[in-house]
Simulated assay, not measured.
Amino acid sequence: MVIGAERGGGHRSRIDGGRRSGHGNGDARRIAELEREVRELRRANEMLKVYFAQELDLDLSPASAAVGTGPGDRDGPEIAPVTPPMAADAVRWDPAPPYAPRTPRPMAEFRALGPIEAVVGGRLVDLGAPKQRALLAVLISKVGQPVAVDVIVEELWTGNPPPSAITSLQAYVANLRRVLEPGRAPRTPATVLRTFGRGYLLDNRVVEVDVHRFGERATAGWRALDRGEPRQALREFEAGLTLWRGQAYAEVADTAYVRPEAARLEELRLSVIEGRCAALLAVGAHEMAVAELEAFTQAHPLREYGCELLSLALYRSGRQAEALAVLRTNQKRLAEELGIDPRPALQHLENEILNHAPALDWRPVPGGGI
């Protein structure tokens, strides 16, 4: 708002009929203050909208819409405009943002390295019927990311959904929400299993998944081995492997949507087993490594690194002939089944075993004993 500056004749105040009274400046200041307060209220309103949206996990974007009106979506209020509940004089904002990420104890812990399990409040909970468990498995495989309703329906009913599929899906969601958040008040927004646009997601800010812990342990183990710390590597690898209880995402491991993730985890598990055996060799536990690697290579005969480790473990255990036999059996199998030669590392190892190369002998690693 501009005060004064009338046309045609100098500058006169519009307040008090153009006369400059002793109160003119005070009135102008008051109007300016009111304008600032109006602007501050507008900013406060917008900030409150963002604040409550983040605190209540609401989606205020125009593109977001409820999945439906079935029982799975009736436990959250509709989004209404937020108005500041205080007078302008009471509005005071700190320099810090109104919302800061928190790292509370997870509201739910999910186990997907085997049959799907969920722990809430320190106790295993009943996840219900097979399709309800499969729904949770699909969401866990993409934790923190929304999964579209169409994708879920496709996976649960293998491309042939009944007319009641959406209604059934909403019922499964409602049941899981009651199990995963038993203390949630009626018709309040879900925190763990949220509706997001035309889909659902598990909020990774409030849940924990054993898949992630396994990945962290695997990475820490390989890094420790690279640093020459085999004892630490053993601890990390073993802690990761104890998380496994069977096939990852057992309920939905063969579905098109989850199959790549299940295959990735299985490959990582096998590499961690090999890493653990390499750590055993590094600390001098050769016989222990032999026992584990013999079973491993029988189950996975085409994994060349496993064969390499077994051959080295046999050689260090004084079983040179068996060490050579492992390498030559592997060479024959690769040629017959795949039409390829062993990788150079295995050919080099065979030559070193034949020549009793000192480089193959075990040397204690400082601090590396078991």
Rank of each mutant, 00 (worst) to 15 (best):
E322V: 00
A66I: 11
Y51C: 05
P230I: 02
A323C: 06
V209L: 11
V173C: 03
L113V: 06
L56I: 01
E6N: 13
A299W: 01
D73N: 12
A278W: 09
V206F: 06
V209D: 14
A100I: 13
E261G: 02
A137L: 07
R12S: 13
V125W: 04
V326I: 15
W157Y: 10
R223E: 15
D126T: 09
I273M: 14
A250W: 01
D361M: 10
D203N: 15
H212E: 12
T255Q: 10
V143W: 00
D94C: 00
A53H: 07
G284T: 08
L310N: 02
P101D: 09
I116P: 01
G24W: 00
S64Y: 07
M47L: 15
L127H: 01
P163C: 06
R316T: 05
R213I: 06
N351G: 03
L265R: 00
Y200Q: 04
R198L: 07
F214L: 07
A299V: 02
L176Y: 02
R7M: 14
E261I: 10
V211W: 09
L314V: 05
L268K: 14
V206A: 04
P342D: 02
E350D: 11
R20L: 15
Y305K: 13
N175M: 02
F237E: 03
A90N: 05
S21D: 04
V206K: 02
E266M: 14
V38K: 13
V252M: 05
